[in-house]
Design a protein around this nucleic acid. Structure first.
Length: 862
DNA sequence: GCGAGATCCTAC
DNA sequence: TAAGGTAGGATCTCGC
């Protein structure tokens, strides 16, 4: 055996020519082989299905369910105390439009439901037993629901164990194998976290909460909010404290609960049908060779490891088991070209390296198995200069003529497979097949891109900073070279109309101002430049012309907006990068205003209209005419211990005391609004739960929203267009005068402040002895007219309220029941609440006019 | 008032 | 044995 460990980081060459890990045999059998075995076990029966066999995917049986438990006030349900009272089930075949079955298992009687079977049980043990039997008989391929991994499944299993329900836990397809909760406690730098995993041999738990969190960037991830965003429909949101009351009522209130529960089981199925994520995940599982569940519960690493194992085995390699060094040295990343900030009314062409990092790794044969670790390795192995490559990061790799690396092979396979899939996609007619192929080509792309990250993951399975550092170093050199080539070639001296200028670039792209007037010419030059510069790089590195921005607003590094053209005749979209419109850490008001202003500026090219609009919004804001749902800021709670004080963290602590059952946990996004308070109060002291604010009429700090939320983003987008007086135009003017704020029901002063009654006609303060009257002496002659006005206003509010009420009833699917919904994601909820308050106050105003006088016809009719 | 540091979220 | 990476803007708190 020849030890050549200088070649490669930890590989040993055996006489047979095969490559084995340097780790001992015992370690190998404990880790690598285990992984290989798991890799081809039953778990990914789907991922090993033949690649062309997409039709089988469409017939998987999906079982979606949702449980309700009777919790206690202020306490999150605990499985050894609070009973499971209902389980709703919805069954569907994947790819089918129609639901096969709907049913609900209830504790105690429940009135019949038109569209679902109802099974009632007198005791909980029978209910759970029957449900488990139902699952086994149904024999689903896929379990789904919303938050089933972290709530419904663990709760059911814990509850069944507590109640000693016999045989409940046999929920998988293997006889005699129980589904058990495995808890792993991990200590990260973020804090202590426990993960729960449950085995269901032969079935795939596919939690839609995990899917939406992974695939969509949303302000809120409640089922309600997600459905609103993705399906465009709301569901009612019943506060957990009401559920117990409904259960303790009669068969009608339990039916009410069952309908609610059924909806929660049905929505995940609809989500699944809409987002096609399962199809994509099946493809991803096939491409990478990872069980589908891992795609939701684990990170990017497992995919790369699985591919390394699969391809490595084929090529005769074994993967070494790496001991995490916990190293913390960072390596240098990509270059971001210093932007030439401004508003461009010339077309700006964008050139991109496609799949930059994968193509670098292929082009330079960067791999664990081609790295020369020591400086003497080259001479020791007798390699000549043209057999090795020295990277800009000062690392040496052997060329593919000596040995072709494993990573480049994997990447080539992925890129070639993607190309093939895209060609098939072009010819595909069937929409299901199109979706499958699109998912597959996407999986190939994502897979290829995560290989680089894997080599740079220091706490990962097999980090190799020589590779990742070299990749980024090549990238930096390439973007610089591209910039130089463009600016050197496209000059007046070379016969072009102007000297081209690279105004910005990030990692793998350059934005070029060719200083030409038309889209056509810019595209033509862009294509030409991409073509000619590509020839200066090694295969398969390619620079491509992708799009033209016209006009283009370049605010800062990683912050810009522009109209995106791929053809000269019509823009594809307005593209915003890094600007408030795409960020979730501000309130919707800011995102909407900035979005609208940008559209007015870039699409309509109407700066006047944009400023007027912005001024109007500022005026509305200061006059409290902006709906509270527009002012809700959400931020993610990312850890348990924070160094400094922050609004969302302090609010979380407040809610924990007030309503512990509803307290947010790490990983949740916390919604809050900023309320008016003492003058120099910090923002974290003024943050409050939007619903609490609404229910207690706490005034909003409009000034905060103007000064700390709206003003800077507005100035940033207007300044490049209007110049330095943008700020004075927008923020100082008649429209910024403030109106008095509504008084609060809570707070230190609320008990002392005595509201002075004013005349409903001229708004003058009424003298003390006439406070109960509606108008002052001066307005007395006009009293009838003023009354009519108030009445008209009151009626308008009544109509508005009844419209909103009907809308909520429609949402909850019933027109003759009380509305229980308190969804903090629903704008209608906020408006309904607000109109209700206004209606109350209007009623009181009208009462001040006294009893209607009978002679008045108008009043008689009321 | 200013700068450092923490934090969030995004671009690539 | 849980975990792709770095660059970077914006905002807020806190200490000076």
């Amino acid at each position: 055996m020849v030890d050549t460990n200088i070649l490669g980081c930890c590989w040993i060459e055996l006489p047979s020519g095969r490559w084995f890990p340097r780790t001992s045999t015992s370690q190998f059998s404990k880790t690598s082989r285990c992984q290989l075995e798991v890799d081809v076990s039953w778990q990914d029966f789907i991922s090993h299905a033949p690649e062309g066999d997409w039709a089988t995917v469409a017939r998987f049986r999906i079982h979606s369910f949702d449980i309700e438990c009777a919790g206690r006030k202020g306490i999150f349900p605990e499985a050894n105390v609070d009973p499971v009272i209902q389980i709703a089930n919805v069954i569907q075949l994947h790819g089918d439009g129609d639901v096969l079955t709907r049913n609900v298992f209830t504790l105690k009687s429940c009135a019949p439901i038109g569209h679902a079977d109802v099974f009632c049980y007198d005791n909980e043990v029978d209910l759970l037993c029957a449900w488990a039997d139902f699952v086994r008989e149904l024999d689903p391929d896929i379990f789904t629901g919303y938050n089933i991994n972290n709530f419904d499944f663990p709760y059911l299993l814990e509850r069944a164990t507590y109640l000693k329900v016999s045989n409940f836990e046999y929920l998988g397809r293997l006889l005699n194998v129980r589904s058990v909760i495995k808890e792993t406690v991990t200590q990260t730098k973020i804090g202590k976290r426990t993960y729960k995993t449950i085995n269901f041999e032969g079935r795939v738990p596919y939690d839609m909460l995990l899917v939406t969190k992974r695939d969509f960037k949303l302000r809120s991830y409640t089922l309600n909010s997600v459905c609103q965003e993705i399906l465009g429909e709301q569901k009612e949101d019943v506060h957990y404290s009401i559920i117990t009351d409904l259960q303790n009522g009669d068969e009608q209130t339990r039916r009410r609960l069952a309908v609610y529960c059924l909806k929660d089981a049905e929505l995940p199925v609809r989500l699944l049908r809409r987002v096609l994520s399962f199809t994509n995940d099946v493809e991803m599982a096939r491409v990478t060779g990872v069980p589908i569940t891992s795609l939701l519960t684990k990170g990017e690493q497992v995919k790369v490891v699985a591919q390394l194992l699969r391809h490595g085995k084929q090529a005769g390699y074994f993967m070494p088991s790496h001991q995490g060094t916990g190293g913390a040295d960072q390596f240098e990343g990509a270059t971001v070209i210093e932007p030439v900030r401004g508003y461009y009314t010339d077309p700006i062409a964008t050139l991109d390296f496609s799949s930059l990092y994968p193509s670098i790794m292929i082009a330079h044969n960067l791999c664990y198995s081609t790295l020369l670790k020591s400086t003497t390795a080259k001479t020791k192995l007798g390699l000549s200069d043209d057999q090795v490559t020295r990277t800009p990061a000062n690392c040496t790799f052997v060329r593919s003529s000596v040995r072709s690396g494993l990573l480049p092979q994997i990447l080539q396979h992925l890129l070639a497979a993607r190309k093939k899939t895209k060609a098939l996609l072009k010819e595909a007619k069937d929409p299901v097949l199109q979706a499958v192929l699109n998912g597959r080509q996407l999986a190939y792309k994502i897979s290829a891109n995560s290989v680089y990250g894997f080599t740079g993951a220091q706490n990962g399975k097999l980090p190799c900073l020589e590779i990742s550092g070299s990749v980024t170093a090549y990238g930096r050199a390439m973007i610089e070279q591209t910039k130089r080539e463009v600016e050197a070639h496209y000059t007046v001296a070379n016969g072009y109309e102007s000297d081209a200028k690279v105004i910005y670039g990030d990692t793998d792209s350059v934005m070029v101002n060719f200083k030409v007037k038309t889209l056509e010419r810019s595209m033509e030059l862009g294509r030409e430049a991409a073509e000619s510069i590509s020839t200066k790089f090694i295969d398969p590195i390619r620079l491509e012309f992708e799009k033209v921005y016209y006009p283009y607003l370049l605010i800062n590094k990683k912050r810009y907006a522009g109209l995106y053209f791929t053809r000269p005749d019509k823009y594809d979209k307005m593209d915003c990068k890094g600007i408030e419109t795409v960020r979730r850490d501000n309130c919707p008001l800011v995102a909407d205003v900035i979005g609208t202003c940008l559209r007015k500026l870039l699409i309509d090219r109407d700066p006047g209209g944009a400023t007027n609009y912005a001024k109007q919004v500022i005026s509305d804001l200061l006059q409290n005419n902006v709906d509270i749902s527009q002012l809700v800021i959400t931020k993610e709670l990312t850890k348990n211990d924070y160094a400094g004080k922050q609004a969302h963290v302090e609010l979380m602590k407040k809610i924990k005391k007030r309503d512990p059952g509803n307290a947010p946990k790490v990983g949740d996004r916390i919604p809050y609004v900023i309320t008016a308070s003492t003058k120099n109060a910090k923002a974290f002291e003024k943050a409050e739960d939007p619903i609490y604010v609404l229910e207690n009429s706490i005034p909003i700090d409009a000034k905060y929203y103007l000064e700390n939320q709206l003003s800077k983003p507005l100035v940033r987008i207007f300044q490049p267009i209007l110049g330095d007086n943008a700020e004075s135009i927008l923020l100082r003017g008649e429209h910024t005068r403030t109106k008095t704020v509504v008084t609060s029901k809570v707070g230190a002063l609320a008990g002392f402040a005595k509201k002075k009654e004013i005349c409903l006609g001229c708004k003058s303060v009424l003298p003390k002895d006439r406070e109960t009257e509606a108008v002052c002496a001066y307005c007395r002659p006009k009293e009838s007219t003023i009354y009519q006005q108030e009445l008209g206003h009151h009626r308008m509010l009544e109509n508005r309220f009844s419209e909103l009420f009907t809308e909520c009833q429609r949402c909850q699917g019933s027109l003759h029941e009380e509305i229980l919904c308190t969804s903090r994601d629903c704008p209608i909820f906020y408006i309904r609440k607000k109109v209700q308050m206004e209606l109350e106050s209007s009623k009181m105003k009208i009462a001040r006019f006294g009893k209607p006088v009978l002679q008045d016809d108008e009043m008689l009719s009321n």
